[in-house]
Design a protein around this nucleic acid. Sequence first.
DNA 1: ATCCAGGGCGGGT
DNA 2: ACCCGCCCTGGA
Length: 291
Amino acid sequence: MKEQILELELKNSFELPHIFDCGQCFRWNKQEDGSYTGVFKDNVLNVKKQENIVTFKGICNGDIKEICREYFDLDTDYEQIKKVLSKVDDNLKESIKYGEGIRILRQDLWETIISFIISANNNIPRIKKIIERISKEYGKKIIWNGNEYYTFPTAQSLSKASVEDLRTLGLGFRDKRVYETTRLILSKEIDLEKLQQIQNSNELREELNKLPGVGDKVADCIMLFSMRRFDVFPVDVWVRRVMNELYIKNEDESKVDKKQIRNLAEEKYGNLAGIAQQYLFYWKREENKTA
DNA sequence: ATCCAGGGCGGGT
DNA sequence: ACCCGCCCTGGA
């Protein structure tokens, strides 16, 4: 396939570090020039922003313009979303100022399910390494600019991996979860097409919970990052920390109930809770990095 | 060396 | 319903 290039003027609500470091994706890597290169579906792309001009360049399976429009969710008006969320309170307003260029990518459902099963009780560098190894072993190779990239494997392809194979790739105790989830999806015992049609988020979460390795937090990440469910509010340790600091103020943070946090988020942020979560997560997380 | 990292599971009340 | 200990691995 041939390289394609797309240039767009994107003034607001599009900042690469905000998009790629807010916790939603694992396969985008920062380059020396500040641009990011990543693999999604059958595409390899480099994205660079200079002034207000964003340049997308790479190998695309289809029209780069359409692919980027969808993946980067360019038809959604984040200025409007931020305007609404800024009115909630000063805390959220502050977090939005910090991560004003965040966008929720439209990621592949299957890849997101497996990726977040791997994320359980794990750290980001290792999560990324494991996903790269899985892709290298079971994905499809794409060569671009003399470099090798690997697509995330299909369920069909990943099903060739035994539990032992997965253990060898470093998944640890998550090996069985990935193995069994792959089978449930491949056999359509859990039918991903049908999942998309479930409107009610609580109902959808219960369905996702049937997959081994998918509890409430992972299910919420799947819904937010690959199913456009902006109403869900994934509660991980960082979000629990920031919500406790801002609102709950319990002296023992570990005692704060996750359900209490979800209810609070729904009450405050409504059907935009998931986007609020991204601003809060990025804010707290980056603050911690520099501390 | 010991602990922990973007949880989930299974076995207890 | 809650509660708790345990789970692979590797980097600090």
